[in-house]
Deep mutational scan, measured.
Amino acid sequence: MAAGGDHGSPDSYRSPLASRYASPEMCFVFSDRYKFRTWRQLWLWLAEAEQTLGLPITDEQIQEMKSNLENIDFKMAAEEEKRLRHDVMAHVHTFGHCCPKAAGIIHLGATSCYVGDNTDLIILRNALDLLLPKLARVISRLADFAKERASLPTLGFTHFQPAQLTTVGKRCCLWIQDLCMDLQNLKRVRDDLRFRGVKGTTGTQASFLQLFEGDDHKVEQLDKMVTEKAGFKRAFIITGQTYTRKVDIEVLSVLASLGASVHKICTDIRLLANLKEMEEPFEKQQIGSSAMPYKRNPMRSERCCSLARHLMTLVMDPLQTASVQWFERTLDDSANRRICLAEAFLTADTILNTLQNISEGLVVYPKVIERRIRQELPFMATENIIMAMVKAGGSRQDCHEKIRVLSQQAASVVKQEGGDNDLIERIQVDAYFSPIHSQLDHLLDPSSFTGRASQQVQRFLEEEVYPLLKPYESVMKVKAELCL
C-alpha cells in the first residue's frame, strides 16, 4: 500500500493539533497551500530580480507567473513527485505547466533550498508574528487579574506546605514575570531571523556568478533584492546548502521555554482548584465526569500541561538535527523538520489560546482563602504575639514557653481530632496574655502579614508589564474561544 493518505478522510490519521486544537490561522501558515504558494512567490521574486539585473526574462513571463501564483494543481504535483521522487522539481514542473512561456526560467540558477529553506524562514517569521500578540493578550488578562487582587491576602506555599502570606495578585505576578520573559525572547528570536537568500547549491553562489558572467556586484544585488522582497532586513552571508540548523534550535528553545512557563502556571491553577481557592472557567453544560456528576475538573489547565510537556520535548529534535548536518548538509534534517517545526508552533498556539481562555474567566473564592488563612495564621502570628507581650512588660522566655504549650495543644486538636485551630481562643482565655487581649485582632490582621506584596504588584505592572504590552494595544480586544 502506498504511503500517505487522504487526510480529510475519517479513515486516515490526522494530527489532533490540526484537527482538534490549533487555530485556523496557525494551521494555514503550515498548510501545503501556504507552503507551495510561497515557493511560487519566491520563484517570481527571483525572476523579477534577475530581470532587473539584466537576464533575458520578459515582462510577459513575469506576468504569467504572477497570474498563476494561486493556480496550484495539487493532484498534478503529487503525481509528479511520485514520478520524480523530488518535491521541488515536482512543483517546478507543475508551475511550468500553467506558465508555459515562463517554464524555462522558473528556478533559474537556484537549488531546492532556495524555495525550501527560504519558505521555512518566512513561515517561522509569520508563525512567530501570530504567537506574539496571543502571548501579549494572556499577559494582559493576567495583569488585569493581578491588579484587581493585588491586596487580597492568601496563604503562600513553599514545598506545598503553608508559608508566609502573600497576595493573590502577587502570586499571579510570578506567572506574568515568566511570560514577559517569554514574550521578550519570542520577539528577540523573531527579529534575529535572517533570510537564507540566493546562495546556490553549497552556499557559494557559483551558479549565479556564472549567470551574471562573473559580476560579483550583481550577485550581491540579486541576494539583497530577493531578501528585501521577502520582507527581511538581512540575509546570511555564510550558508551551506541550507541555512544553519542552529536557527531551528533557537526558535524551538524559546517555544519550549514558553511551554515550561505555561505548565507551571496551569499546575498552580490545578492545585488551587483542589484547594477550592480558584477555578478555571466551567461552562453551564460542561460535564466533569461521566460517573461523578459533582466533579469540576480543571480540564483546560490539564490540557495545557499535557501539550506543554510535548512542546518542551520537541527542542531535542533540532538539537540532534543540527549535530548531524555533515559538511554542507545531509538530508537527516528533512523529514524531522517537516514534523517538529509545525508541531512546535501548533502546540504553542494551542496552549496560548487555551491559557487566554482560562485567564479571561478565572474565578476566585475569597471566603475559602480566608478560612485557610484562619487555619494557619495563628501559628504564624506567634512571633508577633511574643513581641507584643514583651512590649507590655512580659518575659520573652516565659511567653515563648506559654505559646509553645498552647500551640501544641491547638495542633493536637487540628491533627488528632480534625478540629479547627483554636490557638487564639486559648490565648484569649489565658490570664497571662490579658495585657494584649485587646491587640489580638490587630495582630491577626492578614494584611499585616503580606509585606509589600501589593506595592510590588503595582510597581511591576507599571514599570515592566504595561510598557512591554504597549506595541500590542491594537490587538488586545480579541477574545479566545474554545470549541473543545
Rank of each mutant, 00 (worst) to 15 (best):
Q177F: 09
F433H: 07
L406H: 15
S31F: 01
D430N: 10
L482E: 08
F36G: 13
K170H: 07
I351Y: 04
M181W: 08
Q177K: 01
Y243A: 15
E50W: 04
Q221A: 12
T202P: 00
A291I: 02
Q409S: 10
S438N: 09
D120S: 06
K295N: 05
L271N: 01
Y21R: 00
D120I: 09
E80N: 11
T313A: 15
A18P: 14
A18K: 11
K75V: 10
T382S: 11
F379G: 04
R137Q: 14
K224S: 13
I373N: 01
T52Q: 13
A143C: 12
P467I: 14
I176H: 03
F195W: 06
T158Q: 00
G451I: 03
Q455V: 10
Q456R: 04
P298V: 03
L183F: 10
V363C: 08
A381T: 06
G4F: 15
I287N: 03
Q161P: 01
L135R: 01
G5S: 11
F95I: 07
Q375W: 02
E279D: 07
A381S: 07
W39I: 07
P100K: 12
L152G: 01
K246D: 07
R371L: 00
H263T: 14
R459L: 11
T450H: 05
N336D: 07
D32F: 10
T38S: 06
A235I: 07
A291N: 03
R40M: 03
N353V: 09
E79H: 11
G394A: 13
F74W: 10
S253E: 07
I176V: 11
P56V: 12
C172G: 10
L165K: 01
W45F: 14
S447N: 12
D445S: 14
V88L: 10
E279L: 07
M312V: 08
Y472S: 09
T202F: 02
I436Y: 04
H86K: 00
M292C: 02
Q408W: 06
R338L: 02
P133C: 13
S23T: 04
L222F: 06
K147I: 09
E417H: 01
D129N: 10
R83V: 10
F345Q: 05
E463I: 11
S474Q: 14
S323E: 06
T204K: 00
I62G: 02
Q325E: 03
F433G: 04
R303P: 00
P366T: 07
E343F: 03
I265M: 15
Y472G: 09
P435Q: 10
C172K: 02
W43V: 00
G200F: 00
L307Y: 00
G169E: 01
D32M: 14
V262W: 05
N336I: 14
L311I: 11
S323K: 05
A431R: 12
I385M: 10
